[in-house]
Amino acid sequence: MTFAKTLAIAPDVMARQVGDETVLLHLASGGYFGLDAVGSRFWQLLGERRPFPEIVDVMLAEYDVRREDLERDLGRLIDELLKQSLVGEA
């Protein structure tokens, strides 16, 4: 994952927030993917087309977490989202 690049939600993905979590549906494959509360917030900010560094700054202000931990966790999430074709590089 390259943090320098901006990510975009794939056009064939539906997302529905239920409670504080989100479930994604990849229409092309029929596959489903769950996001916890933190992942849901990331997804929301991604939907606002914000660049990754800005997303990190927003989430650091909202969550009690160290920058390196947040970047590592988001990096893993992004890798998984890319693998499932749920996001792509803008």
Partner: peptide, 11 residues
């Protein structure tokens, strides 16, 4: 059951 878990159950 959490709503997201309920949704996956329904899926």
């Amino acid at each position: 059951v959490r709503p997201a878990a309920a949704l996956m159950d329904l899926v």
